[in-house]
């Protein structure tokens, strides 16, 4: 009976976290399309509901009632598993995101490693989908995407080391609290920029959306997917984008801390600040999609391995030497 109680409590907590995440994913798709449209002097989706807010829900309804087509030559188990993996991985990562000092589902010691691990597993959904489709375009898209995500993960890892050097803990709440006086975006600004660009590549967003470059690869690894399975890829992708924004907000923008530590601002709960920061980063993501042309594949690889990796490694040495020389290394 006791166990059952605990299980119910946890399920309640998980639902309380996941339902808002899923709803906000739907909203964020609308925001993305809207920002994209405004940059190009279009209206964007503005018909369904006020300002077109319910557009994503209408789309989801459409996807649910569409037929799921499974190609006869595909590897059926893996084909069906792929969107599930993408979606699950995008959602389980939210377990460690702190919304305030106490509002966190799992306050684990190695929070940032967990986030990094889950985001590095995200490549499997794409590889599985691309391979199981047993078709040229999805396979090419999957191979491209795997190479791209593995490359940019390296630089994200090194950037995380930069932040960890300044914090001295892998716990996400500790990382946020360490930024009480100074957000890491100021001393580590170049790292923030590199993190942002790597996050674009890691989530296959334009200008790095080569895995689904429609001019060359139809829709990349999603080509053979239809109906709800396609929608799950799509939801997982946007949940991942939100997650990357949350990671950026926690690592560099002070997570749930309020920007100014004086009276009226401190009244606003931390969750709101975190959401505002995530939205700010997402707005930048959407802007980049609208204004930057797609990278060529060799340039993408060059940027990842020859520019970002050396730069972030050098910055690690720099940060470490600075902290060591001025005796600022965190100790506990």
């Amino acid at each position: 009976m006791e166990y059952l109680n605990i299980v119910f409590q946890e399920v309640y907590k998980i639902l309380f976290l996941l339902v808002p995440v899923l709803v906000s994913v739907a909203m964020i798709v609308w925001l993305d399309r809207r920002v994209w449209a405004f940059v190009q002097k279009r209206q964007g989706p503005n018909v369904v509901g006020p300002f077109g807010l319910l557009q994503s829900l209408a789309d989801a309804l459409k996807y649910i009632f569409k037929e799921i087509i499974i190609p006869s030559s595909s590897n059926k188990v893996i084909f069906i598993l792929a969107p599930i993996v993408t979606m699950t991985l995008a959602l389980i990562a939210w377990a460690v995101i702190p919304f305030s000092a106490t509002q966190v589902l799992a306050d684990i010691n190695v929070g940032i490693l967990y986030l990094f691990a889950v985001s590095s597993l995200g490549v499997y959904g794409i590889i599985m989908g691309g391979w199981a489709s047993n078709s040229k375009y999805p396979f090419l898209g999957a191979i491209r995407s795997a190479a791209q995500m593995v490359s940019y993960e390296v630089s994200i890892g090194v950037i995380i080391i930069n932040v960890l050097l300044c914090v001295g803990s892998l716990n996400l709440n500790d990382i946020v609290i360490a930024q009480q006086n100074l957000w890491f975006v100021i001393p580590l600004f170049p790292m923030f920029v590199i993190f942002f660009i790597s996050a674009l590549a890691e989530t296959n967003r334009p200008p790095f959306d080569l895995p689904e470059a429609e001019a060359e690869l139809v829709a990349g690894y999603q080509t053979e997917y239809s109906g709800m399975m396609y929608a799950m890829f799509w939801l997982g992708e946007y949940a991942n984008i939100l997650l990357m924004c949350a990671m950026g907000a926690i690592l560099f923008l002070g997570g749930w801390l309020s920007p100014i530590d004086i009276y009226p601002f401190t009244l606003i709960p931390g969750a709101i600040w975190l959401i505002l920061k995530i939205l700010l980063l997402f707005f930048l993501f959407a802007l980049v999609k609208a204004i930057v042309p797609r990278y060529r594949y060799d340039q993408l690889m060059r940027l990842g391995w020859k520019v970002f990796l050396p730069l972030s490694l050098t910055w690690v040495v720099l940060t470490a030497s600075y902290l060591f020389y001025f005796n600022l290394l965190p100790t506990n």
Binding site: V110, L113, Y114, F116, A117, S120, L121, V123, V150, E153, G157
Partner: peptide
């Protein structure tokens, strides 16, 4: 456990 995930599974 996490390093196992990152290094072996992720890379």
């Amino acid at each position: 456990g996490m390093i196992m995930l990152i290094v072996y599974v992720g890379a």
